[in-house]
Design a protein around this nucleic acid. Structure first.
Length: 266
DNA sequence: CATACGTCCTGCCAGC
DNA sequence: TGCTGGCAGGACGTAT
């Protein structure tokens, strides 16, 4: 593998260290951990790619149907002649080269995979206890659970009928059971649909994901809730949009009155 | 210690 | 038609 860094800010460790760990090594396999693409190389080394908001990994054979790269940031030239381009308009993503020990440490900072067999309702319930965070923030925290982003957090909470502002530890066992089920269902469906292309997301061949047509509340402010017909509400939580149905997902403040801040933590 | 907010960056779109 | 403000899939550093 040969590497050219066009945008230095995509490689926080610096180009020389990045290249030194990777160049000349063969790729063994490609996997995923949370929101990271994990490219495993010889010698236990790892090229970790986080796409941020607008990042894409594009595989380019020399052909007419190559996907379009508008903002190339890093070129990877593989031995077989395949060119892989990391492309990123906003450059919130990053690429990192890690040795075996550093990858092990990084892996440990990430929470469990929600689709893994080990992620049971009991496991989730145990992790929720003791956290006063709003459940939407809890779902987005990669240390608590890996791989859940804003779209799927909102969709899962709608499906589970849990308000985004509910303190994590305030969920009843029944609500935890519903959220666990909803989260796994949403993620499986989204993977089946090859993701959600709102604007920028593309797979390695330049293709779009179709889960956008299956969104129930995300980006649908004012639309009728598909379950009860009440207009979907948008609010801002931690500087990010939260969408929910005010009727299906009752406010934690108790009743319908916003402003009555009676957060009851049992 | 844990949670909350501003910031990084560019492009697009609605509204004026 | 052209400009402006708001908004965007993420995550980290710092303040509280």
């Amino acid at each position: 593998m040969e590497i050219t860094v066009l945008r230095e800010d995509l490689v926080p460790q610096g180009t020389p260290a990045f290249r030194a760990l990777l160049e000349g090594r063969r790729i063994r396999r490609v996997a995923r951990r949370g929101k990271n693409v994990v490219i495993r190389l010889e010698g236990g080394r790892v090229l970790l790619v986080n796409l941020g908001m607008t990042g894409r990994l594009l595989a380019c054979h020399p052909s007419a149907s190559d996907p379009v790269s508008s903002h190339p940031g890093v070129h990877l030239l593989l031995d077989g002649g395949l060119r892989v381009i990391y492309d990123d308009v906003r450059r919130f993503g990053c690429l990192e080269a890690l040795g075996p020990a550093r990858w092990r440490d990084r892996n440990r900072t990430l929470g469990p995979e929600p689709l893994s067999a080990g992620f049971t309702v009991e496991n989730m319930a145990a992790r929720l206890t003791g956290s006063t965070s709003p459940i939407r923030s809890w779902l987005l925290d990669q240390r608590r659970i890996a791989g859940v982003g804003n779209i799927y957090a909102n969709e899962a909470l709608w499906r589970a009928r849990v308000h985004p502002l509910r303190p994590a530890s305030s969920l009843t066992p029944e609500e935890v059971r519903r959220l666990h089920r909803a989260l796994r269902g949403i993620l499986r469906a989204a993977i089946r649909a090859r993701g959600t292309t709102l604007r920028d997301y593309r797979d390695a061949t330049g293709g779009e994901g179709s889960f956008g047509t299956l969104l129930r509340v995300y980006g649908r402010e004012g639309d009728p809730c598909p379950r009860c017909g009440a207009p979907v509400v948008r609010t801002v939580l931690s500087n990010r949009s939260a969408f929910f149905c005010p009727r299906c997902q009752p406010s934690p403040a108790g009743g319908a009155a916003p402003g009555a801040a009676a957060f009851g933590v049992p």
